[in-house]
């Protein structure tokens, strides 16, 4: 039985931890994680994990278009915690993945944020910012994917991603300072995406992939995407992580 416990600390330079003021090295965000894993017979192996990421973003900005159709910049300061559960299951006949194998992988996320939201930090919007009030949001999301190698060098795969409608309490809207249409990105919707792929690996070092996606991550818009990837590796053979 494999068991791994760990903790990591890091800077706060990227989402969701952004802190523009403290652009330096230090303990500004942190995570705790645990992994367990084992084999089931000779053909199956798995790993499951849980992790928790905590940070205190300050003046984390994003752009939106308010009800007067003006591009405004809003910002959030407060606490942001993310809980992640992850799971991988691999199967190969006799544990020999060369010819046929299957891999299932999924992750579930829950992010909770609370603090203050500032509308229109530059004061260019119609109601005239900046306006600040309390904000809290809880949102979950997940993806699940399966990849099946049905013969040597050939694989098919399918992946589904989804974010749930966030459960929000926006002080600026709830107290009537702003209309919900002034903060359209924060209005609820459920982005989702379906992706299917077929790839062929002539050797360990190159891969050609056809990928089809139906992307519904923007409200009211469906993007149908076709990708052809050519992936190759140069230099030493990298080892296979689980």
């Amino acid at each position: 039985m494999f068991l791994e416990l760990g903790a990591e600390f890091g800077r706060a330079r990227s989402f969701p931890a952004n802190d523009a003021e403290r652009n330096k090295n230090g303990l500004m965000s942190g995570s705790l994680f645990a992994h367990v894993g084992d084999d089931v017979g000779i053909a199956n192996s798995w790993r499951a994990g849980a992790s928790w990421f905590a940070s205190e973003p300050r003046d984390r900005t994003y752009d939106d278009v308010d009800s007067s159709n003006t591009l405004v910049t809003n910002s959030f300061s407060g606490r942001s915690n993310t809980t992640v559960l992850d799971f991988v299951w691999k199967w190969a006949p006799e544990g020999n993945a060369t010819e046929r194998n299957f891999k299932f992988q999924g992750e579930w996320f829950r992010r909770h944020e609370s603090g203050r939201l500032t509308y229109d930090i530059d004061g260019v919007g119609a109601p005239g910012g900046p306006l600040s009030d309390s904000f809290s949001s809880t949102q979950t999301g997940f993806y699940a994917q399966g990849v099946w190698q049905f013969m040597p060098a050939w694989r098919v795969g399918y992946r589904y991603d989804q974010l749930e409608n966030a459960n929000t309490a926006i002080g600026l809207v709830d107290r009537g300072t702003l209309a919900a249409s002034d903060l359209p990105i924060l209005r609820g919707y459920t982005p989702q995406r379906n992706t299917a792929m077929l790839d062929w690996s002539p050797s360990e070092f190159s891969r050609i992939r056809l990928q089809l996606a139906r992307d519904q991550t923007r409200p009211g818009v469906t993007d149908d995407q076709v990708w052809v990837h050519y992936i190759m590796s140069l230099g030493a053979h990298g080892a296979h992580k689980f």
Binding site: M1, F2, L3, V36, D38, E94, A97, H240, K241, F242
Partner: peptide, 16 residues
Amino acid sequence: ALQDAHRIDAKPSLIA
């Protein structure tokens, strides 16, 4: 003997 020694994953059970 039924596995290809070139193509093994660093499985959790092996690390343990």
